[in-house]
Design a protein around this nucleic acid. Structure first.
Lengths: 191, 191
DNA sequence: GTCTATACTGTGATAGAC
DNA sequence: GTCTATCACAGTATAGAC
């Protein structure tokens, strides 16, 4: 059901969380935007944080799956696989029916509670790190662990920044974002 | 006074805001970390948001001043000036006695209220955009307005990501951060 | 599954003594 | 400028009827 009550709630919450943060968004705000009364939320979610929890998992899972598959794949240049992951990941952020944006970067997500989402994010980061290592190696510059960690940190930051960039410029075009981001990241890696 | 009550409050608040966000940080949390009782905060700040306000302005002002000066300067390669701004800006984030980190990216900062800080952030972004345009031009690729906006968005995102990267790896070394970030950004610009 | 009514708690902020 | 005491309100969540 695309427009079920539950879905309306998730949609509304995603937009509000992205705009104002988790704690600053009240259950009343969410309910109002979803077109129901505040207590009705609790017919769908046990507690407020479960809404964010579901949004986070939903947003992260596709990228993690694809990322780990691509990182494990062999026999194809890492550069191509990294490009493919970026393409996939960025499109999820744009075409997902939610404006899931910034969610992964919300400070509240770091503080306890959302361990599962945090873990998924780590796995996605690892996928990017693994592909980055391979790309660097292909280019004749196999990185040390320390250096890889730092450079992959920047790469992942650029990926995650898409949410914020899109938030600040709602007209940002998907194709532009995919192309610019991919180019930037390949250049950061020295390609 | 480096350890005046007021300063202890700012220090405590900066750390808590960065870790948990603005709304999720209570005035009691701040007071406790500052070693005073909650109502004593109000001898120093009229309202809670004034604490964040001051932290934001304090963090942004030096970079803005330096950035606008460097962007206006002529007769020196833009590449050198951009490098200098990055060096300065990143060191402020690291050596500032506050862990001002993520503050600029807090969602709550976007929603109304902190207009002055928002404006400073725009000016800093403009300084980076201006220098980026010059660098691209020096390289023989004068950008169109649209392209510049997008590429400068990525550049600025990399700069701002330092806060988060440092938060996630508190051992991150200043010199490494300066070098890696500068290299990444110059590469993004095609240098 | 949605509503009205409401309980309970946490939070920002003030009053006023020291 | 710090404290204790306290207020007023906002916010999450529950109860129970429809």
């Amino acid at each position: 059901m695309i427009n079920s009550g539950r879905d309306r709630i998730l949609q509304a919450a995603a937009e509000l969380f992205a705009a104002n943060g988790f704690t600053a968004t009240t259950t009343r705000d969410i309910a109002e935007r979803a077109g129901i009364k505040q207590p009705s939320l609790y017919a769908h979610f046990k507690v407020k944080s479960d809404i964010l929890r579901e949004l986070l998992l939903e947003t992260l899972r596709p990228g993690v799956e694809r990322g780990e598959a691509l990182a494990a794949e062999t026999g194809r240049p890492a550069r191509d696989r990294l490009t493919e992951l970026l393409d996939f990941d960025i499109r999820v952020l744009f075409t997902g029916r939610r404006s899931v944006a910034v969610l992964g970067v919300l400070p509240e997500v770091r503080a306890g509670q959302f361990a599962e989402a945090h873990q998924l994010r780590e796995r996605l980061r690892d996928a990017y790190a693994g592909l980055s290592r391979e790309v660097l190696t292909e280019l004749g510059h196999p990185p040390g662990d320390e250096y890889l960690k730092r450079i992959a940190g920047i790469v992942f930051a650029v990926v995650e920044s898409i949410s914020l960039r899109r938030y600040e410029d709602p007209d940002l075009d998907v194709e532009d974002a995919v192309r610019d981001t991919t180019t930037a990241i390949l250049r950061i890696l020295g390609a």
